Computed example of a mutant assay.
Amino acid sequence: MAQGIIWQKSSFSGGGDSSDCLEVAATAEAGLLVRESDEPGTVIETDRPQLAALISHLCPSS
């Protein structure tokens, strides 16, 4: 994994230093990286269309 990755917490995490949230980082090599803050060593590499499809599946609009 590349050094210097800047992780951004989900706005739904409630802020602060909680270890119970989703984090996302953008990289030139992988597109998007996703991890859960309490398991920072487990990282999923994806791209915008795949992540959008997952979010749409999990949170369908009413």
Rank of each mutant, 00 (worst) to 15 (best):
L32F: 05
Q3P: 07
S37F: 00
E23Q: 15
G15Q: 05
A2I: 14
A28P: 03
G41F: 05
G15Y: 01
S62Q: 13
Q50E: 15
E39P: 00
I55H: 12
G15C: 04
A26G: 09
A28I: 02
E39F: 09
I44P: 00
T27F: 00
F12Q: 14
I55V: 15
I55N: 06
G4C: 07
A2D: 15
W7L: 07
D20Q: 11
E45K: 15
R35S: 05
Q8C: 03
Q8M: 04
L33P: 03
S18A: 10
D38H: 14
T42F: 14
C21M: 04
S10G: 08
S37H: 11
A26T: 11
E45Y: 06
I6F: 14
T27P: 01
E29N: 12
R48L: 14
L51Y: 01
S37C: 07
G15W: 02
I44E: 01
V34M: 03
W7T: 04
L32D: 03
Q3A: 13
G4Y: 03
I5V: 15
A2C: 07
T27Q: 04
E36N: 07
A25N: 10
I5A: 09
D38R: 15
Q8T: 12
M1C: 09
A30N: 10
A2H: 12
K9I: 01
I44D: 00
I55D: 06
W7M: 08
W7N: 06
A30Q: 08
G16L: 07
S37V: 08
G31T: 00
A52H: 12
S61Y: 01
T42M: 13
S61I: 07
G4N: 13
P49K: 09
G15T: 02
G16V: 09
I44T: 04
G14S: 07
S11H: 11
D17G: 15
V34E: 02
A52G: 08
D17Y: 03
C59S: 14
L22T: 09
M1G: 14
S56M: 06
G14L: 10
A30G: 03
R35G: 07
G31M: 00
L51I: 03
A52L: 12
A52T: 13
K9P: 06
G4S: 11
Q8I: 07
E23M: 05
L22C: 11
I55W: 14
D20V: 08
H57P: 01
Q8Y: 10
G15L: 03
Q50Y: 11
L54M: 12
H57Y: 10
V43W: 08
L22Y: 00
G41D: 11
H57M: 10
P49S: 10
Q8L: 10
T42R: 15
S61R: 07
H57V: 04
G31I: 00
G4W: 02
I6C: 10
F12M: 11
D17A: 14
P49H: 06
I6A: 14
G4Q: 08
C59D: 14
H57K: 06
K9G: 01
R48Y: 13
L33G: 11
W7K: 05
L32Q: 02
A30P: 01
E36L: 04
A26H: 12
V43N: 08
T46A: 13
G15A: 02
E45D: 13
P40Y: 14
S10F: 07
T27W: 00
D20I: 04
I6Q: 14
I44Y: 08
A26F: 10
I6W: 10
A25W: 06
W7D: 04
